[in-house]
Amino acid sequence: MTDVHFQRMKDLPSTHLLGAGTAMCAGCGGLEMIKEVYDVLGENTVFVNAAGCMTLLSVYPFTPFRGSWLYTAMASSPAGAQGVRDALDILKANGRMTEEEDLEVVVLSGDGSASGMGLSATSGAIDRGLDFIYLCYDNEGYGNTGQQTSPESPHGARTATDAVGPGNIGYKKDLFSIWVANKPAYAATVVGAEPLDLARKIEKAHELEGPRLILSLAPCPTGWGYDPAHTVEIGRLAVKTGVWPLKEYVDGKVVHTRHPGKRTPVEAYLETQDRFRHLFEPVRNDKVIAEIQARVDAYWAEVDVDDGTKA
């Protein structure tokens, strides 16, 4: 592997590839992440999109991508990536296409597809060792339809389908571990609010071959209920509180790229968002807040504070 180019913030690009003018909400954390990822991957990419918020990135005749794009469906974007990758390999192998014409194949999917309907297709792609990047913007709900509860909605969060009671009674699915259990070429969590960490991971992923997961928390002002100006703050708080661990799986090990020695209490993160407001008003729900904290604590109890590895 070549040296990492992104050592300091100043190494991040000051011009960006992704075109402006998309239909995403103002302050979209998912779009912020995609913009950062695209700067590193470059335009020699084909994004294979699963139905979700980002379907509306490309609406005829407008696309923000300087490279290519294929819309598939909600359940089968990894299969679309398989078809594109296999076809490119066939064309290269029999001399109908040059190496220079090749593309990095990137699935773009929301959490609803990634951890729900599309999981079967992801499973198949991993089984086949597909050479692709799976880029998931996790906004913790079916965002494009108005933030209904998805497999990635966190415990206690109110959504459009858990709107008036205690919030989601389920727990966020651990998609990272599902991937890691199957020994992919690479897996990492990122967030747009930590662009340097993100750039290093995307660069690393780009240089590897095989199934690679980039799982990004995507703070969503519309679905989570906060002022769009606070997307970066909330992303950072997710990291500082340990709610969203930044980590990577490479060479058979999970290593945390940030391991906050002194974590901020989770309520600092929860109270920024309307979806958790009911845990604080009109009366504070200490039981649920404590449970959320305890789960985060239990996670980090298994992380070695010195080298960031996980037991």
Binding site: V48, L70, T72, A73, A75, S76, S77, P78, A79, G80, A81, Q82, G83, V84, D86, A87, L88, D89, I90, L91, N94, R96, M97, S120, A121, S123, G124, D127, R128
Partner: peptide, 28 residues
């Protein structure tokens, strides 16, 4: 034959992959 055959995990995926490969320029 110089054909690449790939087992998919469902027909939904198989037809997606077939269309995607055709769209990339091979005979499927």
């Amino acid at each position: 034959i110089a054909t690449r055959m790939v087992m998919y995990e469902s027909e939904h995926s198989m037809i997606t992959g077939a269309g995607a490969a055709a769209a990339t320029g091979v005979r499927v």
